[in-house]
């Protein structure tokens, strides 16, 4: 069992941002959410994390409706890395990562040894160990992003929800991050803009347009020139490598393809 969305709809301030989406990630799989801006990727992630509640349909964790679970028990299983999360607080990286231990506090407080081990492991996994004592504001955008991911890993989640985590990362760190996510023994749902990253690292992709899931399946089946043209309004050529991983080459719609 896992985190599961069943025909969820969300009417957000008069706009139907998620319209009847069903999502059932396989345990341990990496699922990419694709689609243009405003297609409902972030909104779907908010429904999955329980930060927002669907108007219709249900999100369940191991078969239990999220609404019936306390926020804390959800947070012990589901971790979230969102977009645009900044702070005015003068906080060190290690303390940011340590926030991930909050849901694991017992009634008598925290367990320092377990917490420290989880924090160290999360820092190591994201390559942030040598920056643990730096102040948040002294980090680059990419390092801040990695610190957030370390914070999510310190939560020791079984399900990881990420909203465009490769934003602000240079290409090497984009690849490293997704390799890390793929390697982790967690189920990951990750919103991505880059179709090639999705093709290379996701076991499955779900393509969204106007709040609906218009296609789902392995990247090699889903990412066709027809679908990309329909959803994004651009021309694309899809090359399939020897390893079966598709590569998408984009061309502007207005320019005709060479004969």
């Amino acid at each position: 069992m896992t985190l599961h969305a069943d025909r969820v709809r969300w009417n957000r301030g008069g706009a139907l941002v998620v319209d009847g989406v069903t999502l059932t990630p396989r345990p341990g799989a990496t699922v990419g959410l694709l689609g243009p801006n405003g297609s409902g990727k972030s909104s779907l992630l908010r429904l999955l994390s329980g930060t927002a509640r669907p108007d219709d349909g249900t999100v369940t964790l191991d078969g239990t409706d999220l609404r019936a679970l306390s926020r804390r028990s959800v947070a012990r299983t589901v971790a979230v890395v969102g977009q645009h999360t900044h702070t005015d607080v003068d906080i060190r990286v290690r303390d940011v990562v340590r926030l991930g231990r909050i849901p694991h506090r017992g009634p008598l407080g925290s367990r320092p040894a377990t917490d420290a081990a989880a924090v160290d492991a999360a820092l190591a996994a994201t390559g942030m160990t040598d920056k643990a004592d730096r102040f948040w504001h002294s980090l680059s955008g990419g390092e801040q992003q990695r610190a957030h991911i370390a914070r999510a890993l310190a939560q020791e989640p079984r399900e990881l929800l990420m909203d465009e985590p490769t934003n602000h990362l240079d290409i090497r760190h984009q690849l490293e991050l997704l390799e890390l996510v793929q390697r982790l023994p967690v189920t990951t749902v990750v919103a991505l803009h880059d179709l090639n990253l999705a093709a290379a690292y996701c076991d499955e992709v779900v393509v969204m347009a106007a709040g609906r899931a218009v296609a789902a399946g392995p990247p090699a089946q889903v990412l066709t020139p027809e679908l990309i043209g329909e959803v994004y309004g651009v021309r694309a050529t899809v090359l399939v490598g020897e390893d079966g991983v598709p590569t998408v080459v984009l061309r502007p719609a207005a320019v005709s393809a060479p004969a």
């Binding site: 994390s49 804390r72 971790a79 979230v80 969102g82 999360t85 900044h86 926030l99 909050i102 849901p103």
Partner: peptide, 18 residues
């Protein structure tokens, strides 16, 4: 600990189980 969790805004606090 809940006050700590608010450092990165409401959404992060919420995802940390507050």
């Amino acid at each position: 600990h809940a006050l700590d969790a608010f450092a990165f805004g409401d959404d992060v606090a919420d995802s940390l189980g507050i």
